[in-house]
């Protein structure tokens, strides 16, 4: 066998993996950090090991069947104040866009995952089910709209969030709701 060819096929994997590593490292460390509230969970991938899966809860964005493919973040990083739908051609200082070729495709702004160690994955899974805490994921957002979740933490619910959580489901919004108690109670004579 040709020595040059052998050297080439031996070096190729090493150079390729090394280049991939360098590129991943560079991408990971660039960008602005934002803290995004999350909810939900789901574990495990067979090749890469354990992860938690979550749903982003962008403040100010309501999904109504249609999932946004791009959002504009406002606030003073890392404090995220609002996220708004980003239309085509609109200018935005801090955009995030769904990576359509990624695992979540067009749902990439709704769902995300974070790889963590086996033991921590189990602990986090329980914490995500604990309704007294709020999950917060820090993402690193870059100018081209790509972003990477980098860490996860929990904080206790604020009073407003607790009120929202404790509110009965499907609270009637209509003041003339027929099932609502009568506005004026008749006094018995």
């Amino acid at each position: 066998m040709n020595r040059a060819a052998r050297l080439a096929v031996t070096a190729l994997p090493l150079l390729g993996l090394g280049a991939l590593w360098a590129q991943s490292d560079r991408t990971y460390h660039t960008g602005t950090e934002w803290e995004v509230p999350i909810e939900g969970y789901d574990p495990r991938d067979y090749l890469r090991g354990h992860y938690v899966e979550f749903a982003y809860d962008w403040p100010g964005v309501f999904y109504d069947g249609i999932v946004p493919e791009a959002l504009c973040l406002t606030g003073k990083a890392p404090r995220l104040e609002r996220a708004e739908w980003l239309k085509e051609g609109q200018s935005c200082a801090h955009p995030v866009r769904a990576d359509l070729s990624g695992v979540y495709g067009s749902n990439a702004l709704m769902r995300g995952r974070l790889y963590i160690g086996q033991e921590r994955a189990e602990a986090l899974q329980q914490q995500l089910q604990n309704r007294a805490h709020r999950g917060i994921v820090t993402i690193r957002q870059r100018d081209d709209g790509s972003f990477t979740p980098i860490s996860i933490r929990f904080r206790p619910l604020t009073p407003a969030e607790r009120a929202e959580r404790d509110a009965p489901p499907n609270q009637p919004l209509d003041p003339f709701d027929p099932l609502a108690p009568p506005a004026v109670m008749e006094q018995a004579p």
Partner: peptide, 13 residues
């Protein structure tokens, strides 16, 4: 590849 994905939080199909 899986190891890189874990450390740098990249997930691709």
């Amino acid at each position: 590849f899986g190891h890189l994905g874990q450390v740098y939080q990249t997930s691709s199909p």
